[in-house]
Design a protein around this nucleic acid. Structure first.
Lengths: 217, 217
DNA sequence: CGTCAAGTGACAGTAACTCTCAAAAGAGGG
DNA sequence: CCCTCTTTTGAGAGTTACTGTCACTTGACG
């Protein structure tokens, strides 16, 4: 396997790691190898799942395809679900929110940032987002594991909300509001996948958040 | 084991099935036995988990304590998590929502009904709600499985929303709104448990929903 | 080059499920 | 009361995700 792969030459198989990959200029060999293993495991997983389905794909197969031992797979990802679900979107969104003007109503900031982030992510990893959301619709175990993701994102979101609104980050209202937002975005993603990704996800996210803001009349 | 147990004599160990139990007047012996097995499994589970913790409690132990075979446990509950999480709250809430005046703003209806339902449930199964939410805080697997619960409740809620607002039940806005509400309620439950159930859960639910309605300022 | 720490693989073990099949037990008719 | 049909149960074997241990390899660094 060549040391430096031209990522832009593999339009259909870019991984969600690619964003992280792109901006790791010169780490030690150890770190680079680790990143490569991560990517290899994830690529193998996505490929095998696309071929055989989620349940039919065992960790052993993944390990073999990625040319590592099963132990190593579990060292990199605590559960099989995580191989599919792990992403690095939170920092992007948090940073985006911090960059918005302080006076702006908070939900407006969220809408702006989430819509922009969605476009960015789609531009970067379109195919993989499609695979991920498709799997999310098909595999209950993944939807379940998603809760963990939501909880983590929620905590991050709470922190920003606290900064912005001068509240405490563990206040009930803050947490409820954060989870409401994330729930809406989650539904937008599911909706997108269920309709075979025909719509513009960014637009769906915007509509979902507007619904939360306006209520239903 | 006696045929008829005086449920009101066991104030601390009443199960979430009790509501369902109370209103099954005279079914066939078969059905009554099934209900009893369900309750036995759940009681055994809660007892063992209280003694040893969730992870340390195996399905085999549960089966033994409930005096059934492990196969039977899995026949009644698809997963170990479900033994803890399954409830019958949705019908209560749906019926409550249908009973609200048609003109009322929808979120107001939701607030009324959820707050009332919370009080009712607490009055009926207080100890078990405490156990459940405590476990929810402690056990990640349960939080994850909760997603399934939320999805089901969400579908039910969507249906009522559709009836009330004249929209389609699979419309994005409806689904996003439903999930936002449930997310907020979920956070209220967690918050309650994290603070050792000192607060009034019904009040927390109300605050959480108000936060969604008003946004954060 | 040598030492140390980090990363890996082989292996054994656990427990949550799944499937299959035969025995047991309620339902219902004679 | 008994015979039959159907539902429910238990027993057992098998799969797989995950955990923990330990010896081995391989980058890092002086």
């Amino acid at each position: 396997m060549p040391e430096n792969v031209d990522m832009s030459a593999m339009p259909r198989t870019r991984s969600l790691d690619s964003l992280a990959e792109d901006m790791q200029p010169q780490l030690g060999l150890r770190e680079r190898k680790k990143l490569k293993t991560r990517v290899a495991i994830r690529r193998a997983t996505y490929r095998l799942i696309a071929e055989q389905g989620y349940d039919a794909t065992t960790v052993e197969q993944i390990a073999e395809a990625a040319e590592v031992s099963p132990s190593t797979v579990f060292r990199y990802f605590p559960t099989k679900e995580d191989i599919v679900l792990t992403d690095e979107f939170d920092p992007v969104i948090v940073a985006g929110l911090r960059a918005r003007p302080a006076g702006e109503p908070f939900l407006e900031s969220v809408r702006h940032v989430l819509v922009e982030a969605t476009r960015l992510i789609l531009a970067h990893d379109h195919e993989e987002m499609i695979q991920r959301t498709t799997l999310l619709v098909q595999v209950p175990a993944l939807r379940a594991r998603m809760m963990q993701s939501l909880a983590t994102s929620s905590r991050n979101l709470c922190q920003v909300i606290a900064e912005r609104t001068g509240r405490e980050e563990d206040e009930l209202e803050v947490r409820a509001y954060a989870m409401a937002i994330l729930g809406a975005v989650y539904e937008a993603s599911l909706y997108w996948a269920e309709r075979d990704h025909k719509d513009d996800l960014a637009e769906l996210v915007e509509r979902a958040l507007s619904a939360v803001r306006d209520g239903l009349r």
